[in-house]
Design a protein around this nucleic acid. Sequence first.
DNA 1: GTAAAATTAGACTCCATTGTCTAAATCGTC
DNA 2: GACGATTTAGACAATGGAGTCTAATTTTAC
Lengths: 234, 234
Amino acid sequence: MKDRMTPAVRMAGHSQRGQCAKRLSILDAAADVFCRQGFAGASIDEIAAVACVSRQTIYNHYREKETLFVAVVEDVMNRANAMLFSVLSGFPENADNLEDDLTGFAVRLNKNCICNHDGKFLRKLVQTEGERYPHLFESWRRQGPGKLTTALSALLARLAHGRALVIDDFDVAARQFVALCNADLQMMTLFGETPSDEQLEKAARNAVRTFLKAYGAPPADKAGPRAHLAALPG
Amino acid sequence: MKDRMTPAVRMAGHSQRGQCAKRLSILDAAADVFCRQGFAGASIDEIAAVACVSRQTIYNHYREKETLFVAVVEDVMNRANAMLFSVLSGFPENADNLEDDLTGFAVRLNKNCICNHDGKFLRKLVQTEGERYPHLFESWRRQGPGKLTTALSALLARLAHGRALVIDDFDVAARQFVALCNADLQMMTLFGETPSDEQLEKAARNAVRTFLKAYGAPPADKAGPRAHLAALPG
DNA sequence: GTAAAATTAGACTCCATTGTCTAAATCGTC
DNA sequence: GACGATTTAGACAATGGAGTCTAATTTTAC
């Protein structure tokens, strides 16, 4: 059996674009089938059919079903983490327009990290296969959601330092922010349904309003401390 | 094939305690195995072994694997719903000691409905098999989580009517309360881990504090509107 | 105690799937 | 256009699980 080429080598020359395309096609198809059927229920033949590739090609690239599964999970995790930090980079820097900026951030968080394909895949697979592959998912937990809390916590601390928020425990506030973002979509998320843009917008707005009611800094004494309530439309 | 007896008939005489015990034993074992392995991964032989029953006995009670699966899911749903409404009945009636009472309620909600065996089972199975049995899980969604929001919303409305809370949208507040309760346990919940009593307590306290910061009624003008912050320990 | 019903172990068939192998076809490079 | 590498379709063996059947045993009802 010859050595498998590393991704770097694989991308080096344009010579193997075809091979690389097959690989990606297999990964995508496998993600789809594993997500729908679970590990046990997924058949290599079905993956091959979805990928428009012969079964043998799959075995050329991945020694066995489990190898393929691990590769798929790692692939999705990498994509999901990259997306997570891309979304995190859009967290509001300053406090002008905080409500709107936070709402936009919440929409992107839900839309691109939690309610998307990859989020659905990871939730499903972590739950069903987590116990069978502890270190695989444990590493995701540390690198994905774990770092999300840490990073979000730091971003909230920055806003609090700038007097835009009043927060006693940044980690708790970070987790609560994420939880509130999902509050209205929990059931859809659980059932794997995709919310409409309107639903995303409304959920984010509800979340941010409540978050700011709890953690928003009281406006600098010219108005009452709940002035933002009076500013609500309707 | 003879008619299957209804549960009522089954319990009527003491004559069939043995048969009934087998049935329950099969349901429990099947819940365990389906939860660990999913529908496709679960083998009837393993269920029989766990239930200490022969394979044929399972087929005497349930025509085929799918029949057994549906029965298990319905059984767990019924238990979970009963527990849910039992916990709901402990929702605080009046506003003396609201923070502590709500915290106790939040602990019970997490401990007995969300982080327990049945909660884990339902989350897992809804996600993995939900698309294959739409009406089965749809009915649970309406009768379980759906009614939870409705009921909790009404309970919050009662407190708001008694001036203990200030809430604009009761449904949103209900969903947010549940979301906040899980905020600190989300990852453990996802990974199917069971939180300690201490973790449950802390998570509930964090949730209720934030909920009351957002929705607590401002104390009747003797102190500033954020007086409860000053009342925090530390 | 006896008869009917339920349970058991195990053999059995059937079928889907995994993973291997091979010979032909296709692709990319020179 | 030729050559090597890759892909393909399909046959193939081996495995495991679903569901049936039977004959013996146990439990329950009366």
